[in-house]
């Protein structure tokens, strides 16, 4: 008889659950505020983008992207719970709510934008797909890679670009696909492949970090455009806006001449109306996003402007601004206006 009652109770409990009244849309912002932490998806061990130092602290361009969003939303650039992912679980982790934002290494493409249930939040880094070969092989251009074995990371645009490029030129090649960039590169280093391909930023970062970078050569050409953008779940326009404007703020700060060290002083003294709106002195722009008014100030004060972030992580690797310079310096970085 006891089991009877237990069963009945079970059914009573389950019945309402089968017909849930819950049809509310996702609200990532309030989830993050409730949690007090931003869940940021990062790819582990990608020099320049995401590394861990000897004390277990993360640093890199992607990490600063996470910190940018956390500073804007929570006012604390370090209130982050990192969610380590592989390229081949990145999208599903985000789709399924395992992370609030994936700010690193995702190329903005038509199909991904339209079919994955994800939204891009604006390009923040322009790269291209390049190749590294051993100097000893004597290869100096991509066209000489006919018949070569090429290592690549799985489920990335690199895998498809490679196929498209070689097919269009009717060049034969064989491919070995690894679960992530790191394993692919290690396989190349161990002479499993004649070349390794990924976008040039992370390629350069990884080659520089080697013990014998001179033995390798990054070919001059690139075979694709790789505009990197943050990714969020589809169906939450406010959250997408927040991430977009958080990234935009770093570029704007560089245009305004704001840096980590001078932002506090300028906030107190500036008469420029746009900078005053930007830093939350007037206009109440933060509230429009559901954030505190000093959201952009926190980004600049805790993370820095775009140029500072770029210099911090990519200059030690010997990378130039190039396409990623401000528009007025001939690059593609342009901040949407704050008005």
């Amino acid at each position: 008889m006891e089991s009877w009652r237990a069963m009945a109770a079970c059914v009573l409990v389950l019945a309402p659950a089968v017909f849930p009244a819950d049809e509310a849309g996702a609200d990532t912002l309030s989830d993050v505020l409730d949690r007090g932490k931003l869940r940021c998806a990062v790819i582990e061990a990608s020099p320049g983008f995401s590394s861990i130092d000897a004390n277990g602290r993360r640093y890199g361009f992607d990490i600063d992207n996470c910190r940018t969003v956390a500073a804007a939303v929570l006012g604390d650039a370090d209130a982050i719970e990192y969610v380590p992912i592989n390229p081949n679980t990145a999208f599903t982790t985000l789709q399924s709510g395992g992370a609030d934002v994936f700010p690193g290494g995702a190329t903005w493409t038509f199909l991904r934008d339209t079919s994955l249930g994800l939204d891009y939040t604006g390009a923040y880094l322009y790269a291209g797909q390049g190749f590294v070969v051993r100097r000893a092989s004597g290869v100096s251009s991509i066209s000489e890679l006919e018949g070569a074995t090429i290592c690549v990371a799985q489920g990335t645009t690199n895998e498809q670009n490679l196929a498209d490029y070689f097919r269009a030129r009717r060049m034969k090649y064989s491919i070995v696909t690894f679960a992530d960039v790191e394993r692919g590169l290690n396989a190349y280093l161990a002479d499993r492949c004649d070349a390794f391909t990924t976008e040039v930023f992370s390629l350069a970062g990884r080659i520089v970090a080697l013990r014998n970078p001179d033995e390798h050569r990054i070919l001059g050409e690139v075979i694709s455009k790789e505009p990197f953008s943050g990714l969020v779940r589809q169906g939450d326009p406010r959250w997408r806006d927040i991430v977009f404007w958080a990234f935009n703020s770093r570029v704007a700060a560089e245009e305004f001449g704001l840096t980590m060290s001078n932002v506090e002083g300028i906030r107190a003294s500036t008469e420029d109306a746009e900078i005053r709106r930007f830093l939350g002195v007037e206009g109440g722009f933060g509230q429009q996003l559901g954030l505190s008014d000093e959201w952009a100030y926190q980004i600049v004060a805790q993370v820095g402007n775009y140029g500072e972030v770029f210099a911090r992580h990519f200059e030690p690797l010997g990378l130039q601004r190039g396409l990623n310079a401000l528009w007025r310096d001939g690059g593609l970085m342009i901040a949407m206006p704050y008005r």
Binding site: Q95, L111, Q154, G155, Q160
Partner: peptide, 15 residues
């Protein structure tokens, strides 16, 4: 697993 769960899953977005 490698081809389907790895590559196709990311291309097709149909987990």
């Amino acid at each position: 697993v490698s081809v389907f769960v790895g590559t196709v899953n990311n291309l097709a977005g149909r987990p």
